[in-house]
Nucleic acid binder design. Structure first.
Lengths: 249, 249
DNA sequence: AACGAGCTTATTGTATACAATCATGAATGC
DNA sequence: GCATTCATGATTGTATACAATAAGCTCGTT
């Protein structure tokens, strides 16, 4: 029943290099609940199938169910939580078929991102990518959960740099959902991206070689997909309340 | 006549491989407000920039602001309405830059849809497509707004038939947002798709010719893009209340 | 024991009340 | 006349109350 792996990192402070997604929904309070839950999901502190009781979440974040509800609705819209009528919210459990759909869409979108980037990326942006990979490297050593998140955010950063906001939002969604898929079908807490593969993509972009970048991405995503076929999760008694305490920053 | 006939079939409990949009927000009431508003937007009864006052909508649909609020949040998540803190909701007004982003993402996604369809489409499904085009033809004659909606739904149907739920959802979104773009930048109530072009896509699919289908789609979307550069709308003094009466089914 | 009817509790769905914020316009001063 | 306050109303943000539904549990009956 030991769950201290997430205890190791209490990282509300880890400053992400990511642009702010919060352009969005009015209520700033629901935004913080939303992003807190989202981070907990992506870092696999909350696992697929976990029940998300509105009262509990509201209590931990210090807000009313109203706020929690809008946050959950937003997560549901992104496919991260399931919402069943009169039965409440749970972390989504993508089927293998859905997993395949996500990976296919992701491949399609990320290729487009690279096509754009190969044409317009600046040296400054390449530097940002490298800085991000440096973050990943550092996190990989000591902070498992953050490493998972950062690995995904590399792809999101690529999408943001592409300059196409729509692509960026879609990539954001499929990458997030990949976290769920990895949580379900891969062995626990494995970062879904080898840093080396990220660097190869950067190299191809530095050469403005779209074809090579796509090839590297194909290979990279293929590796991720392959990895998603391993052991299953062994669930313990994990308590929503204690998990949320770490994310109700 | 139910307008979204092909979405009517869905198993509520089964974690099917084909996720549906309406797996969504529990409350069936907010779903009806959501779809009513959505239809009003797509049929261009509500125009970009229009204010969406919660009280007014709630009154017309016979629900409380709570319900309206979740519907608006969902529309906001799809990019159909803007939500400004403390200032409320308005129909989104995509900039030309956003419009470009949407078209680029749409092209990318729909090509993938066609690639899949060319491999796996059945004769029965081709028949469904033709039936839909027949609907479009009929609506084109006498029902302008419905024609606009049906033209978009042809593409959504293609995406649904592809069997990839993620692709389908994304296509749904970009097609819907195209309605807004057309409303803003094209001349009013022009269906954004010539039926002939739809038929050419069907023909290519019948031949299982992915390349030709994509070419037809490229040409089709290019035509739509080009059309999005014309006159602007001038309708003013339209009353939200009277418009909603037609959509609060 | 196994099963189910009915009660009890926990959780979600919705409406409403109130507070916070914004928009409008009149009154005031220059 | 024009700009500036400041009061007033309209609209949104949030919490809470209550209703509706689902989940568990007790307790008889077989």
């Amino acid at each position: 029943m030991d769950t201290k792996w997430w205890r190791a990192h209490l990282a509300p402070s880890v400053p992400s290099s990511m642009p702010n997604r919060s352009s969005k929904t009015a209520g700033s309070r629901s935004e913080s609940v939303y992003s807190g839950l989202r981070r907990a999901i992506i870092e696999q502190a909350l696992m697929p199938g976990d029940k998300l009781t509105e009262d509990v979440i509201g209590e931990r974040f210090g807000v009313s169910r109203t706020i929690v509800r809008t946050a959950l609705a937003k997560l549901n819209a992104e496919g991260l939580v399931d919402l069943q009528p009169n039965k409440g919210a749970t972390i989504a459990q993508p089927s293998l078929s859905e997993a395949h759909d996500v990976f296919e869409a992701r491949m399609c979108l990320e290729r487009q991102v690279l096509a754009r980037l190969a044409e317009r990326i600046t040296d400054r942006e390449i530097a940002m990518l490298e800085q991000h990979v440096a973050l990943e490297t550092k996190a990989n050593a000591h902070d498992g959960p953050a490493a998972i998140r950062l690995a995904g955010e590399f792809h999101i950063l690529l999408a943001e740099l592409s300059g196409n906001g729509v692509l960026a939002r879609f990539v954001d969604e499929v990458v997030s959902r990949c976290s769920l898929i990895l949580a379900l079908y891969s062995r626990p807490h494995s970062s879904d991206c080898s840093i080396n593969e990220h660097q190869q993509i950067i190299e191809a972009l530095r050469a403005r070689d779209a074809a090579r970048a796509m090839k590297a991405m194909d290979h990279h995503l293929q590796a991720v997909t392959d990895r998603a076929l391993l052991s299953s999760s062994s669930d313990k008694h994990r308590d929503l309340r204690s998990i949320l305490d770490r994310y109700a920053s």
